[in-house]
């Protein structure tokens, strides 16, 4: 059941100037979401499951060479191309801005994966297997997906629900365990403020390159950035010009019109490499 809550609209901001490519988010996601162990052959077959991955791009040639890192995960698009092609409505957009995958409905057509421009949907070609002992670690809040089912980043929706329970019912700040004063314990989206609910990747990121919050939350870290990005879309839709040189805000494949709920902040390049054709 989806909790009816008009005010939530989750969003993530990825600051590429902070990201060092360290892989902390990748392993944190695998630990949180019961992702099967990516064996050597999964990589060799290009079927590794990485709900979040760090892509690395080369720019230039030695000695004027740079490596760029960009974390890629489900963009939770407003106009998600994966959604209309599903014949069984296994993927849909919920009212909190999340692109949701219903594993029970999925019949494995893989149309959604074909239609996703970000390649962030993963199909279970095999029944996931762990040695018995490793199963002790599996997160009880997350389904173990079976063979034949599509899966993807959920923005750690289970942690959102845990956060609600902890904040609103138990009266505890989920991260620090500190008690919230009784007067403040009520159903109000501002309770779920930045810091007391985070996806596992954001929680782990040592440079704080990943930020996550409610886009409406005045005190949160993402509201202003989303407003700027939405302003850019509006400007472009009305035929206006966005001065790319003076903004770090962009969305991935914005021209496709998917309207992601994920915003990237460009890397600042003090000494750009010579980008002449190779």
């Amino acid at each position: 059941m989806v909790t009816q809550r008009e005010n939530h609209k989750w969003g993530m901001v990825v600051d590429l100037d902070r990201c060092t490519g360290c892989q902390a988010c990748v392993v944190a996601c695998q630990a949180e979401n019961n992702i099967p162990i990516n064996t050597q052959s999964y990589f060799q077959q290009r079927r590794a499951y990485e709900w979040i991955r760090i892509e690395r791009y080369w720019e230039g040639e030695f000695p004027n060479v740079k490596a760029r890192f960009i974390p890629i995960l489900c963009q939770h698009c407003e106009n998600a191309p994966c959604e209309p092609v599903c014949p069984v409505f296994a993927t849909y957009h919920n009212d909190e801005g999340l692109n949701v995958q219903v594993y029970n409905r999925c019949i494995g057509t893989r149309y959604c994966s074909v239609n996703c421009p970000y390649t962030v949907r993963f199909f279970n070609f095999w029944q996931p297997q762990w040695p018995d002992r490793f199963r002790n670690q599996l997160n009880p809040d997350v389904t173990v997906r079976t063979r034949g089912v599509m899966e993807k980043c959920t923005f750690c929706v289970q942690r959102l629900r845990r956060g609600e329970v902890n904040v609103e019912r138990r009266g505890l700040e989920p991260l620090t365990g500190e008690r919230i004063p009784v007067a403040d314990r009520k159903l109000n989206y501002r309770q779920m403020k930045e810091g007391n609910y985070m996806p596992a990747c954001v929680q782990a990121c040592p440079t704080n390159a990943l930020q996550f919050a409610d886009q409406h939350d005045e005190t949160g870290p993402v509201k202003a950035i989303f407003e700027e990005a939405n302003g850019q879309i509006e400007t472009r839709e009305h035929g206006g010009h966005v001065d790319e040189a003076h903004t770090r805000v962009y969305r991935l494949f914005e021209e496709v019109g998917t309207k992601p709920n994920l915003i990237y902040l460009k890397k600042v390049d003090a000494f750009p490499v010579d980008k002449r054709p190779r």
Binding site: E59, E244, F253, K266, K267
Partner: peptide, 11 residues
């Protein structure tokens, strides 16, 4: 993988 697609870095 070379170049990142949309302007990744602010020159």
């Amino acid at each position: 993988a070379v170049e990142i697609g949309l302007t990744p870095a602010e020159d």
